[in-house]
Computed example of a mutant assay.
Amino acid sequence: MSAKNLRAGLIGLGAMGRNHARVLAGLDGVDLVGVADPMGDQHGVAQGAPVVPTVEELIALGLDYAVVVCPTALHEEVGLKLAEAGVCALIEKPLAHTAEAARNLVEAFDARGLVAGVGHIERYNPALQSLRTRLEHGDLGEVYQVVTRRQGPFPHRIADVGVVKDLATHDIDLTGWVTGRTYESIAAHTVSKSGRPHEDMVAAVGMLTGGVMANHLVNWLSPLKERSTVVTGDKGCFVADTLTADLTFYANGAINTEWEALRAFRGVSEGDMIRYAIPKREPLLVEHERFRDAVEGKESDIVTLSQGLRTVEVAEATLRSASTGETIRLSQAAEAVR
């Protein structure tokens, strides 16, 4: 170990925690000095670091920061202990199981001036990072709509939240991030087909600032795994596949056609298609690098707790809409949990 390296701890060795352990163990400038999991290291992934049963024992090892990868329902309790001990934290998404719990975490870390972030990993997907840069440069002109599809088989590791707070929070966060907009309202329908207490499918329509429409279709009932984000604007549309990290641009055509049946259509026409060659680094590694840099006091693009709170608020508004059949305005939703 290096005396100059940051001392990091990991909380939780479930499926995602094991990925974090792998990345932390090889992260430049960081030493993984301990892991907390009451079940121990069942898969032998602690990379030689001591494994303790409680958060308190992990904190006692002396930490600069901790990565929280325990069940969502425990995020508030664990996060508050870290904040009280003066330990910075990277907390897996969603930030917390309720907006009230998320707000408590924001206040606790802010009050102590501690660096804290949320693990919304899609922000570090190469396709979405490239897409965001191109939107900022005006490659699409005015943005009209964002459509996301996220589906796949049921993840048995998830037991404490439904598909809205587990999967749809990815799409809520990335939609606001790539467009630079915030949600003004949301309307949604959910169903539960797997016999579990939580919803496992959602269809939602949101309105963002500036009149941008968002559509989200999310489920974990499909054998087909799909992660698609389509952004349409007045110059064409971008299609980002975050499974393969591919980004494709479909331009509006500028060539007149002599085909009478097509000429009668007064909308856009098909133009060039460009598939971009972009560097493809592992998103989880990039996420850890950015958070390490933030803890070291460097300028770094991390997902703040306030941004994570906003995503939980939109997720709760989505569930409230599905329950009441009403369109929920986000200002109302935020006030309802204060």
Rank of each mutant, 00 (worst) to 15 (best):
A240E: 14
T304F: 06
L6F: 12
M39H: 14
Q42N: 06
S321I: 07
G26R: 12
E57C: 01
L58S: 06
Q42K: 15
E100S: 14
A8Q: 08
R263T: 12
A15L: 08
L80I: 14
E289T: 00
R290V: 12
A116K: 00
A108P: 02
T179S: 06
S269L: 00
Y183V: 11
N215L: 14
R157A: 14
V106D: 10
L208Y: 03
G117Q: 03
A294P: 14
E287H: 11
V52T: 09
R310G: 07
S222V: 06
W259D: 14
T179I: 09
Q151G: 09
L131S: 10
D272I: 08
L24R: 11
A85R: 05
D166C: 13
E199W: 14
T98P: 08
D160M: 12
E296T: 04
I91E: 02
S222L: 04
G141A: 11
I59V: 11
S228Q: 13
G29P: 02
A25H: 07
V161G: 10
V23R: 06
G233N: 14
A322F: 05
R338Y: 11
E76L: 02
G233A: 10
P279R: 13
E313I: 10
F291L: 03
D31S: 15
G86Q: 06
G233E: 07
G308H: 02
A204K: 04
G325C: 11
I186S: 03
V191N: 05
S269V: 09
V78K: 01
L208F: 01
R123L: 15
S306G: 09
A294F: 08
V178L: 15
V23W: 03
V106P: 04
E142G: 04
G9F: 00
V68R: 00
I59E: 13
L305A: 03
R338H: 13
G210K: 03
L262S: 14
V67E: 07
T148M: 11
Q42V: 13
A336L: 05
A188I: 08
V52I: 12
L114Y: 08
V51P: 12
G29V: 13
T182E: 02
P71F: 01
L10H: 12
L90W: 00
G40H: 04
L105M: 13
G297E: 02
T229L: 15
L90G: 03
A73Y: 10
V268W: 00
S192W: 01
N104T: 03
C70I: 01
D173W: 03
G297V: 09
C88L: 01
E316Q: 12
L208K: 07
N125E: 11
S331L: 15
A127I: 01
V286M: 05
D200I: 01
H43V: 09
A85L: 11
N219F: 06
V230H: 04
G113T: 05
T175N: 04
T229Q: 06
F238R: 12
V30A: 10
I278E: 09
F154R: 15
G119F: 05
G86D: 09
A85E: 04
Q307T: 11
E313L: 13
P53M: 04
D301E: 15
P283K: 02
R157T: 13
G297R: 06
L61R: 10
E282Y: 10
H43G: 05
L131V: 04
L285Y: 04
A101S: 10
D241S: 13
R338P: 00
H20Y: 05
E299R: 15
V33Q: 12
D173L: 05
A99I: 01
Q145M: 15
E107S: 10
L105I: 11
V295D: 06
V52W: 13
L13C: 01
